[in-house]
Design a protein around this nucleic acid. Structure first.
Length: 144
DNA sequence: GCCAACGTTGGC
DNA sequence: GCCAACGTTGGC
């Protein structure tokens, strides 16, 4: 089933999640910088997702490591372009939107049946992944 | 600190 | 093309 939804301008909108290890780059870093090139992704599946990202798509930011929680909401502010460090790969630009009022922990995600199919659970090592509209909306509700 | 799950590399 | 060895990620 196609989980995408029409935007007013008739383009498809997708929902995404990116993982980051806060000790190397945190949500707070993105918040204070407002915008950042999201590069360094060296996995083919993740690269394919980066290439599918469209301007304005919502992007959830997840902290791996000690935090293990979805902490912030960003959006795609520039679609895929060659990774400045290695043109065989791609990067996007992300713009911080808002911190989640309440972060959603990995544990909370695991305890929620309706999130049991999430890619982040099925493929725990993937650092860029798609999120269905239903999953996105439920996560946003859990963050309030 | 350990380990499972992957992904990559290199010998054959 | 197979597979063992190795490196990395990320949860526990």
């Amino acid at each position: 089933m196609d989980q995408r939804v029409n935007k007013p301008n008739n383009q498809f909108m997708n929902y995404w999640m990116v993982k980051t290890e806060p000790s190397s780059y945190s949500w707070e870093d993105l918040l204070s910088k407002k915008e950042e090139i999201w590069d360094g992704v060296r996995n083919y599946q993740a690269r394919n997702f980066l290439k599918e990202m469209k301007l304005g798509d919502p992007v959830l930011v997840y902290h791996s490591g000690k935090d293990r929680a979805v902490v912030g909401l960003a959006e795609v502010s520039e679609e895929a372009f060659p990774d400045p460090k290695d043109a065989d790969w791609v990067a996007v630009r992300l713009k911080a939107k808002s911190s989640l009022p309440k972060s959603v922990s990995l544990q909370a995600i695991k305890e929620e049946d309706r999130l049991s199919e999430m890619l982040m659970l099925r493929q725990s090592r993937l650092s860029v992944m798609s999120v269905t509209q239903a999953e996105f909306e439920l996560l946003m509700r859990l963050s309030k």
